[in-house]
Design a protein around this nucleic acid. Structure first.
Lengths: 355, 355
DNA sequence: ATTTTTTTGATTTACGTACATCAAAAACTC
DNA sequence: GAGTTTTTGATGTACGTAAATCAAAAAAAT
């Protein structure tokens, strides 16, 4: 059976009060006594019963998720997942809140991080922005002893506890390999639709894509990047023009969130029947396009898994417990039509409204 | 804040003892009193604090995993995952045990299920076998109020609480689609390596594969199934013979666990340079083959996720709590060389032994 | 109305831990 | 050795729930 604080007291020859002082780093214990207690803890392999401690303390873990605003479907899906998890999180003594900031606004993000620090939350998860003020804010959170997780978009050298997301270079490389395999020896250039090359994630995906394409047996041109700012109408226009201007176009890689415009352009021109199209993230649009044959493959990161992982990691850090690395590793999923899981809520009664 | 039993007592105008009797279905409560208490429970939205209850009861959840014996790498990996999870499961009041039975032995499996029922375990997870005595044993477990999860291999109409695994027809279809896409217009038949067609899972994968291949624009022969009994040497022989007998072979789909023999035959003959090879489950052999270019894609189900899911589902069922469907859905993963996650333990110091 | 049976309430103990209080013991200083 | 300071121990209360006991109250039966 598991050792308790009573066992420690007996093994070390001290009282419960002394054990409590050592376990919780309270003052009033001589070094020699502390050593005895710590020795007993180690010998017994004592692990705190966190559930019992939380009960005694009536502890609640307030966690905050800071997400970018806008109509990026993936981010909205991420927000939905947080809200869904939050609906029954009090059962696990967790209280989730969502704060949104303008996309790519480092200053606003830093401000919200500092706000969360002020409120003494138990942990922070944020989609990072490459900006010095964000770097500094993360540093302040860590100094205040608040666990910090970057979500989807990492920030190097930030001291964050954990990154939850996929490797974007590998993502691009995967897209390139698949594109090359699917196209085989069929000739013609490929186009790339990005949001903005100023975003590091997009740059990394392109880098990986180009590397993989250049390693393919068949040499193939990659056209200059189309920057659609993740805007549906702008993306639509760029793709439609490209389809018109490049009659021998062989494929399109959409590495950002402009998929609504892409899918619309493909459907409008009927071009997808002869193109290989690879996009990122399963959303309503890309799911429909995959099922309807407009898109050949979607590379996905599971927002639900990411949110659950963030919660688990922040909780583990707050409790000083180990993180199970294998469980928290986010896989880059490849979906074709045949392995696409059924839509969430597909089990619901047809008349049910939303989910 | 969360309502407690005290709030129920006050709301219903009864004592704590009565609330306890109602909550725990103990005798000695009139119907009219019970209705009052249940009304208060509903109005308050009371949800039991399972952690507090477990503390009061010193509860432990003994769970048993019944797995097939043998050197099937996937099953051994599954067993490793259970043992790994069991190493620190007491922290969560869970006690995992593994029982192995001869592969495909329905009688032995039924006997172990009954043994677990006798020991009054909190839940059972088993790789199912299609046999009437197994069906009956699962029925007995359910009658005894013991939650039952089928793992990897399901059993229809068994009354099990949950299936944790992938859809094998979809798996076969995915393999067929990928094979067709990767081969493009390149001519030549494809071969299928199975364990045994007597195993329903293998039959389903073949079914899906054939359906997808026949839907491809290019018509392509599928050779009669090679049944290697998941034996490395038998599989080696069958593949080597096939490679010698069919010089225009275009691809191989390995739907079972004979991959060690397959990979060895490919390496020995140098045939893989001109073949498209798709296999199932990431194991040491398939990982190396994928990285070395002998295999083009591996379709995988994550054993670690499956074990964690089984534990979560069994715990939730034992507690009478809801199962989060999205979290417990096992995805059919497609791995090519570029999105293959680094090997578990790859973060360890190079000198570290095993893991 | 009386007797018998059933229901209800009050109370205690328990789980493992957190945290506070204050007297007693030990250690330190002069 | 006396006085002062620090450390330690004993104890109580708390968290939310489980479970047992027995007296008192309520309901049912005669």
């Amino acid at each position: 059976m598991r050792p308790t604080v009573h066992d420690i007291a007996e093994r070390a020859g001290v009282s419960l009060a002394t054990v409590d002082r050592v376990l919780n780093d309270r003052p009033g214990v001589r070094g020699v006594t502390r050593a005895k207690v710590e020795g007993a803890i180690a010998e017994l392999g004592y692990v705190r019963d966190v559930a019992a401690a939380n009960l005694a303390k009536s502890r609640v873990y307030p966690l905050v998720f800071i997400l970018p605003e806008g109509d990026n479907p993936f981010m909205r899906g991420l927000e939905d997942e947080v809200r869904r998890a939050g609906a029954h999180s009090m059962v696990e003594r967790t209280q989730l809140s969502v704060v949104t900031v303008p996309a790519f606004d480092g200053r606003a993000l830093a401000r919200e991080i500092d706000g969360a620090i002020e409120r003494a939350v138990a942990g922070i998860a944020a989609v990072a922005v490459d900006a010095p003020e964000v770097l500094a804010a993360i540093g302040r959170a860590r100094e205040a002893g608040i666990p910090f997780v970057t979500l989807v978009s990492d920030l190097a050298n930030s001291g964050r506890d954990h990154f939850i997301g996929v490797d974007n270079i590998a993502a691009g490389r995967t897209a390139g390999s698949l594109m090359g395999r699917f196209l085989g020896e069929r000739p013609g250039p490929v186009a790339v639709l990005a949001g903005s090359m100023r975003v590091r994630d997009h740059g990394e995906r392109l880098e990986g894509f180009l590397a993989a394409m250049s390693a393919m047996p068949v040499s193939r041109a990659v056209l200059p990047v189309l920057e659609g700012q993740d805007d549906p109408e702008l993306s639509f226009g760029l793709i439609a023009k490209c389809l018109a201007d490049v009659p021998d176009l062989a494929g399109i890689y959409s590495l950002g969130a402009g998929n609504r415009g892409l899918v619309k352009a493909l459907a409008a021109t009927g071009a997808a029947r002869s193109l290989c199209v690879i996009a990122h993230e399963v959303t309503d649009e890309t799911r429909a396009a995959l099922e309807g044959g407009l898109v050949d493959a979607v590379l996905n990161q599971d927002a639900g898994h990411e949110v659950r992982s963030a919660i688990r990691v922040l909780r583990a850090k707050a409790d000083g417990l180990p993180v199970i690395a294998a469980q928290e590793r986010i896989r880059l999923e490849i979906f074709i039509k045949d392995n696409l899981p059924s839509e969430p809520g597909a089990d619901d009664t047809p008349g049910a409204a939303g989910n």
